[in-house]
Computed example of a mutant assay.
Amino acid sequence: MSDLRREEGRVADAVAGHWVDRLAPLRARPYLRLARIDRPIGWWLLLLPCWWSAALAAGADGQPYPDPRHLALFLIGAVAMRGAGSTYNDIADRDLDAQVERTRSRPLPSGQVSAKAAVLFLVAQSLIGLAVLLQFNGTAILVGIASLVPVAIYPFMKRVMSMPQAVLGLAFAWGALMGGVAVFGRLDLPAGLLYAGAVAWVIGYDTIYAVQDIEDDEIAGIRSSARLFGQRLRLAVGLCYGVCALLVALAALAAGTGPVGFLGIALFAAHLGRQVLRLRDRDGRGALALFRSNRDAGLILFAGLALDAMLRAWAA
């Protein structure tokens, strides 16, 4: 990373030319970066399992489309809680982040934001997330609160386990439980299967993401699934993605999804397979592009499930 880029305060894997770096007030930029607003892929990946579950629940309930209010609340909540989780992670990891090239430009290790200010910012974002959660039924509120357990322990897992991505999966896939419980007020089999599939998806794509840091992680002693899998990287990611597609298909089957929904699942699986074929060991730039492409994969699945619900409702 160039000295000029460091002076600008931009983070290594941020979207080039993002509005945070061009238009946001200078004092606000470190906080927006701390919340990962300049890296929107994070909240997209947190949001998509919520939208999948909302679309799956709509089809199972005979509705022509997912509840627009729920979709909007999930969007706001995903942005707020992605920011809160990232802030919490950076507070816990600020010493480790200083040892990794890609992360040492983050606001905390680079000194743009103090630890005290970061904690206050974390509280503010968490309150927004809580306000969103309180708009749902009581069961959904309890399920949402339970998500804080994997969120709280994840930053410390890279110190003690070889595949911290598994814990990240438990946290980032949580939205797959929320859409169904928001509609039906209970957890059921389709939601459980969808959640398990989303966990496998997260492990797969975050393993791809970790390819960027293999060299620095080896030096700093940071553990990751990319290091664990080593030469079997493509096989391992392929297995994660295969398990994901299978479990999502089983969730759709349990929910009574029709042919269009399964077409969406097939296209989603094809997108994941294409990622595996293009994955290369220690190709950080390519890994970042493949990681980001999971937004498109997730939107394909959502579109298939939502369109299926619409067509089946019209035909009923």
Rank of each mutant, 00 (worst) to 15 (best):
A117D: 10
A117Y: 01
A118Q: 01
A118E: 00
A118S: 00
V119Q: 00
V119D: 00
V119T: 05
V119F: 01
L120S: 02
L120E: 02
F121D: 00
F121Q: 00
F121W: 08
F121H: 02
L122V: 00
V123M: 02
A124V: 02
A124E: 01
Q125C: 00
Q125M: 05
L127W: 05
L127A: 13
L127M: 12
L127N: 03
L127V: 15
I128Y: 05
I128F: 03
I128C: 04
G129N: 02
G129I: 00
G129S: 01
L130H: 03
L130I: 14
L130E: 03
A131R: 03
A131K: 04
A131G: 15
L133Q: 07
L133C: 10
L133V: 12
L133D: 10
L133M: 10
L134G: 11
L134V: 14
L134F: 11
L134D: 11
Q135F: 04
Q135C: 13
Q135G: 10
F136A: 10
F136S: 11
N137F: 04
N137I: 06
T139P: 07
T139F: 09
A140E: 05
A140S: 13
A140H: 06
I141N: 06
I141Y: 07
I141Q: 13
L142H: 05
V143Q: 07
V143I: 15
V143H: 06
G144W: 15
G144P: 14
I145Y: 04
S147I: 12
L148K: 05
L148D: 02
V149F: 14
V149K: 04
V149D: 05
P150T: 14
P150F: 10
A152I: 10
I153Q: 03
Y154A: 03
Y154V: 03
P155H: 06
M157H: 07
R159E: 08
R159P: 05
R159W: 07
S162G: 12
S162K: 11
S162T: 07
S162M: 09
P164L: 09
Q165M: 02
Q165R: 04
L168F: 00
L168V: 02
L168C: 03
G169R: 02
G169E: 04
G169N: 03
L170S: 05
L170I: 06
A171N: 11
W174V: 14
G175A: 09
G175K: 13
A176K: 12
A176G: 15
L177C: 05
L177T: 08
L177Q: 06
M178S: 08
M178E: 14
G179L: 09
G179F: 06
G179H: 10
G180D: 15
G180R: 10
V181R: 07
V181I: 11
V181T: 14
A182S: 15
A182L: 12
V183W: 12
V183A: 15
V183D: 15
V183M: 15
F184G: 12
F184T: 15
G185Y: 07
G185S: 06
